[in-house]
């Protein structure tokens, strides 16, 4: 008897379970949107006046700081989503329900598959909300339909990678505290990259780090697609990072997933 034949049915059942919980208790969505939204408001309305004029020379004629910062904060949403995923996976793992699932003849990977899909839906919805608010605040992307489709594809890929990392953190962490702290650096990375200010303005050392960390090429590619700034090699590097992080996250999550966690 193989449970593989239940792969689709069980994944859908698990996905329904996840979505029901998210819709009923949308606190995680509030956190995922709240963090980047707060920064959006803070940076545009508080720091924007001072930063804007020196930063927003996008080379495409736009001098609006909101146009510069939105790609970085949207990518940051993938990181806050990852953090949300990590904590909810950790709560799940340490509660008895997962132990119950393990004693049932179901397609086991369906638990993680559903988690990744529901987290992605949650994060992508959050990104749409950020875009919505940004548009109200005067964000004026120059992208056409084609660019938008590619931008959404890129965001989905980045979200996929960071969600798997979040799942891996959540499965590996021994406590909920650890699970919600471990992905925190991911939220900071857009700051130490080209998310808020261009990397050229940073001192040596920081600047090298900023240019070689995964968020910068992703942000630069997104900015290029949305605002028409030059993309160069960034697209390839961004995709490579996403694929690499997905694989690491997936393998790491799988390694720890089969351990019994209830004590």
């Amino acid at each position: 008897m193989s449970t593989r034949s239940y792969a689709v049915t069980d994944s859908i059942t698990m996905l329904r379970r996840d979505l029901k919980k998210i819709l009923r208790y949308p606190t995680s969505v509030i956190f995922i949107v709240g963090f980047p939204l707060l920064f959006l408001l803070l940076f545009v309305y508080v720091f924007g006046g001072a930063l804007g004029t020196s930063v927003a020379n996008l080379g495409n004629g736009s001098t609006s700081y909101v146009d510069y910062i939105v790609p970085g904060l949207v990518v940051m949403t993938a990181a806050t989503g990852s953090l949300g995923t990590s904590s909810s996976v950790n709560v799940d793992m340490t509660e008895g329900i997962i132990a119950r699932f393990r004693t049932m003849a179901i397609f086991r990977p369906s638990i993680l598959i559903a988690r990744v899909v529901s987290s992605m839906m949650q994060t992508l919805t959050s990104m749409a909300l950020i875009f919505g608010v940004a548009l109200l605040m005067g964000f004026r992307p120059t992208a056409g339909i084609g660019e938008w489709i590619m931008a959404i594809g890129l965001l989905a890929l980045a979200t996929f990678a960071l969600t798997w990392l979040g799942v891996a953190f959540g499965v590996a962490a021994k406590t909920l505290d650890a699970a919600s702290n471990a992905p925190f650096p991911l939220i900071i990375l857009p700051f130490v990259g080209s998310g808020i200010v261009p990397t050229e303005s940073m001192p040596n050392g920081v600047r090298q780090f900023a240019e070689y960390q995964p968020f910068t090429p992703i942000i630069e590619t997104l900015r290029g697609l949305l605002m028409g700034t030059p993309i160069g090699h960034n697209a390839v590097i961004a995709i490579a990072w996403c694929v690499g992080l997905s694989i690491v996250g997936f393998l790491w999550a799988r390694k720890n997933f089969n351990r019994d966690r209830t004590q």
Binding site: M1, K21, R24, Y25, A99
Partner: peptide, 22 residues
């Protein structure tokens, strides 16, 4: 044949295995 075993058993563990949010 762990899956054949799983298809026959039911378990109520020491710690509640219910979905508290549903």
């Amino acid at each position: 044949e762990p899956d054949a075993v799983r298809a026959m058993i039911g378990v109520t563990g020491q710690f509640s295995a219910v979905e508290t949010l549903l």
